[in-house]
Design a protein around this nucleic acid. Structure first.
Lengths: 357, 357
DNA sequence: GCGAGCGGTCGAATCGATTCGATCGAATCG
DNA sequence: CGATTCGATCGAATCGATTCGACCGCTCGC
């Protein structure tokens, strides 16, 4: 524990100590140009003696014009963003690819209610590229800022902007597929449980008109997919947060009614919401799937859930890796095409034909 | 969509366009020195004209010697690290404080099996400070590297090193407290379910001797707390990952035995493991808490769980904020004292007196 | 034996901003 | 009216590394 108030050793100091020029010392460290073996040794020895731990990343970055950092912009508080296992698996896949680039991931939280507040932070950080993932508002002031700085961006569908390379999921088709599955099973009274449509959405019943001023395209498109199969008069609810808690609260509004009115199935816009429905059903004494079929969206692991949820699998980890690939190509100077992925319908134990009534 | 292959505008270009020196332009932007109002205006106008988005963070950082980035080192894959809601809430609290500093959080995954692999990445990134959180091995090569670079570090108990400012939880006391709660209720046959003791721990039954070569101090200390109350002959199991899945697998080994042998309670080392126990109990037809009492550790939200878990609340978000405070002081040049926090016993609906037998 | 080529090394420019000290004109004070 | 001070601006050094072109002494080939 020496009180090391002396500034860190620099390459120049090492070069001097080794009796060579800084250029040579630099070459010796990076292993680029041709340097005599014993010179390298002398430099390395001097470095060890002075406690030099390698070139200062900041100086090196400045010269190269690369910081080795990729920004990941997430919506709202980390607590909410990462509560969803889907977000986490995307991030996990992304990190696998970025590890190889190599690049680090810098987390940047941006609240949908005041997206402009993140700009000063963005402006002050050296970023090689940015991923918009799990982050909602469709027009985002950060896009303008980053575009002006010439920083490449990838997104998962939003913000919808041609300057952002998109790896989107066909939300509408996926949602329609799972809805059709229920219809094929014979369900007619089917309710829809939506993720937030806006940053200030309250949990509660909703109608089709709510879609008109949706901020989040995911939620809107999944709702449209549902409405492609079931009609506008279907019971719908939205939530303030896409978590189990709010899912259960909204599900109670959908399910707590006389049997003749009660939906025989609920199409939830995420697996977490679906878990909320299951929980609410449980509280109301409804068995899944005998009394109520439930579907989710995302395809996350739900280890605490006995059984398997019927859902649309988005393959989060794979999606994260794909985002990473796009990023890698962007960093290499390419301009990859937008991509649209399809989700896979995965039938579990939470859906069945409705009871005869 | 202009093909902007022209390099970004620099401060110098702006200064020239405005007809002032770069020094003045810099002053105009930062608002430090005294600059005439109309000069500022001219500079700002020129900046707007050239599409200058403010000083390059890299250059600015180099000059200041601050990157505005704090590294967060997490154990293993993000997927596993963030599967645990406790980790997420700590991160959330941390981010709240760092937002104000301001500083960004750079995620760095470090596998316990080969911690040295993270060093090159560390060496290449400009970090103002580092948080070791949720990251296990007690001696970590990264500490040496970072110490040599003079980068301040905070940790949550591990790695145990005097160069790392610690904000630890009294794991042993917490674990003893929750164990004592069960003893007071009248339990005698109580089993203990442990998080991984080593990065290569298999899920399976274990004995006290397994503690001797534990890598992870948290797990070891919680086990010791349990053994402060119940004796060495107690049934114990460890897991390969601290998640619900492995918790359930290990719990089956503990519970699937004749009633006379079967523990009447399980002290799990984390809430997620406890959920695994609940799930295994369910499968075996055991009611909680009538047939089996279950306790956890951490105090996370378990929205899908009907009822509340008896646990030790670590106040994750608050802990994250406290870590942030320590970091802030470290960045200000202080050298804060280590801190030891206590967890709070929170009694839920998963513990009760054992059935008369 | 002489020029081409090459391995090894170095000097200097550069990346883009910040900041200290110097300068200069104008206003203030005695 | 001369001396002092203050406000505004600028020049130059600096942060720490990377890299291009130049240079020097050898060896090899013709």
């Amino acid at each position: 524990m020496t009180t090391d108030r002396q500034p860190r050793a620099t390459l120049r100091a090492v070069a001097e100590a080794a009796g060579v020029s800084t250029s040579t010392a630099s070459l010796a460290f990076s292993g680029k140009g041709p340097v005599a073996a014993d010179t390298v040794e002398r430099v390395l020895a001097a470095a060890a003696r002075l406690g030099y731990t390698g070139p200062d990343p900041l100086a090196s970055s400045l010269r190269h014009g690369r910081s080795g950092v990729v920004g990941v912009i997430v919506e709202g508080r980390l607590l909410h963003a990462f509560r969803d296992p889907f977000a986490v698996s995307v991030l996990d896949g992304l990190s696998q690819v970025l590890d190889e680039v190599p690049a680090g991931m810098l987390l940047i939280a941006q609240h949908a209610g005041s997206p402009e507040k993140a700009i000063p932070q963005l402006a002050g950080t050296a970023l090689d590229a940015v991923v918009f993932s799990l982050c909602g508002p469709d027009d985002n002031p950060a896009v303008d800022h980053l575009a002006a700085r010439g920083i490449p961006m990838v997104g998962d569908g939003s913000p919808a902007d041609e300057r952002v390379v998109q790896l989107a999921l066909d939300n509408r088709a996926g949602s329609a597929a799972v809805s059709r599955h229920l219809k094929d099973l014979g369900h007619h009274r089917v309710a829809h449980l939506m993720m937030p449509l806006r940053h200030d959405s309250p949990t509660g019943l909703a109608t089709r008109t709510a879609l008109d001023d949706a901020e989040f395209a995911d939620s809107r498109d999944r709702a449209l997919g549902f409405l492609d199969v079931f009609d506008d008069s279907s019971l719908m609810a939205q939530t303030s947060l896409p978590d189990v808690e709010q899912g259960a609260a909204a599900a109670r509004l959908l399910l707590d009614r006389p049997p003749a009115d009660r939906p025989t199935a609920v199409v939830a816009q995420s697996d977490l919401l679906a878990m909320g429905v299951v929980r609410a059903a449980d509280e109301l004494g409804l068995r899944v799937p005998e009394d109520l079929s439930v579907t989710g969206f995302d395809g996350v692991e739900l280890p605490w859930f006995p059984g398997t949820l019927t859902t649309i699998d988005q393959h989060g980890e794979q999606k994260g890796r794909r985002l990473g690939e796009l990023l890698r190509r962007l960093l290499d100077g390419e301009r990859p095409q937008d991509e649209l992925q399809a989700g896979d319908l995965r039938i579990g134990t939470t859906t069945a034909a409705p009871a005869q009534s």
